[in-house]
């Protein structure tokens, strides 16, 4: 750095400052992408009544069918042996039913349908390195597979452990999860599982209406339901909500707070990068130290 002058230093520093200011001007809007304001008041949801579901598993069959997987013969789905163990959504089949005992009335066990909850403040949308996930205005959380790099951070982030990954593929492995039948609902059709459910355990509608319906049911049948809608407030609210006859923790629902899942990490991220001020301040500070210590050295050199 012998030949370097103070003017060089200022010139380059100014250039960096200018670039950074440019970046700053461009980014704030992007940073707000996951804020709840984009959600429509009329966004859709599904109310799952676990006390009504009879465990016919037609929703599982329909899910595979509408997503183009080999669903097999629908009659084989009446086989109840699968309830012997707890199952999770798979790469080819985004929803499963699990059975739980009903102590109040043992002949009608509870069935819990598992699929993506379509959070209002989704962790996957916040986490995704390339922003492949989107929370649509209408409620669905979908993803653009062409953007995906397969880092699996969405799987780490998801509080419900929903996304799955095609580990067995060397080329174009994909993230998979329930897409709320995004394409079907755009055409005015019901989501596959809701469409086929023979007992109306699943109710598709505007989320705010579903909350009213759920509250009414809990009020009318206080013996049938515990007084809680899972998904009403959990992790900031979800599009899919559940009614149950026994405590949700006994039905393997995770214990979650009402704070949105990405809240803490986003505030840290935006704190560190608040309009690029902290990094630039650090840069300036270090530049100052570098300059001062260098001059000190020069002075002591002259005195010798």
């Amino acid at each position: 750095m012998g030949k370097q002058t103070r003017r060089d230093f200022l010139k380059v520093t100014a250039a960096i400052g200018g670039t950074a200011a440019g970046i700053t001007a461009l980014t704030p809007k992007q940073a707000k992408a996951a804020s709840p304001e984009i959600l429509s008041e009329d966004r859709m949801g599904v109310l799952v009544d676990t006390t009504v579901c009879i465990g016919c598993r037609r929703c599982e069959w329909m899910c595979k069918k509408v997503h183009g997987y080999d669903a097999g013969d629908i009659e084989t789905y009446s086989n109840e042996e699968v309830f012997g163990r707890m199952r999770r959504p798979q790469n080819e089949g985004y929803t499963v039913l699990n059975r739980y005992d009903n102590t109040k009335n043992p002949i009608t066990p509870y069935h819990v349908k598992v699929q993506c909850m379509h959070c209002d403040r989704p962790a996957c949308v916040s986490a995704c390195i390339v922003g492949a996930f989107t929370k649509t205005e209408k409620g669905a959380v979908i993803w653009d597979t062409d953007k995906c790099i397969g880092c699996r951070y969405c799987m780490v982030a998801c509080p419900f452990q929903i996304p799955t990954f095609e580990y067995d593929k060397a080329i174009e492995p994909d993230i998979r999860k329930c897409d709320f039948c995004y394409e079907r609902t755009a055409e005015g059709l019901l989501p596959g599982c809701v469409d086929i459910c023979p007992v109306e355990a699943l109710t598709y509608g505007k989320r705010r209406d579903l909350i009213t319906i759920a509250e009414k049911r809990m009020k009318l049948y206080p013996d049938r339901y515990i007084n809680r809608i899972f998904g009403h407030t959990e992790v900031g609210g979800t599009s899919w909500m559940y009614l149950a006859g026994k405590d949700f923790s006994e039905l393997d629902f995770p214990k979650l707070s009402d704070a949105p899942a990405p809240g803490v990490s986003e505030s840290i991220q935006h704190g560190i990068f608040a309009y690029f001020v902290p990094p630039l301040a650090l840069y300036a500070l270090l530049g100052g130290i570098m300059w001062v210590t260098k001059n000190k050295e020069k002075k002591s050199g002259e005195e010798e």
């Binding site: 940073a31 990490s265 986003e266």
Partner: peptide, 10 residues
């Protein structure tokens, strides 16, 4: 493809 909310992106 940017996502300013993502720590992994940073």
């Amino acid at each position: 493809m940017w996502n300013g909310n993502s720590a992994l992106f940073e």
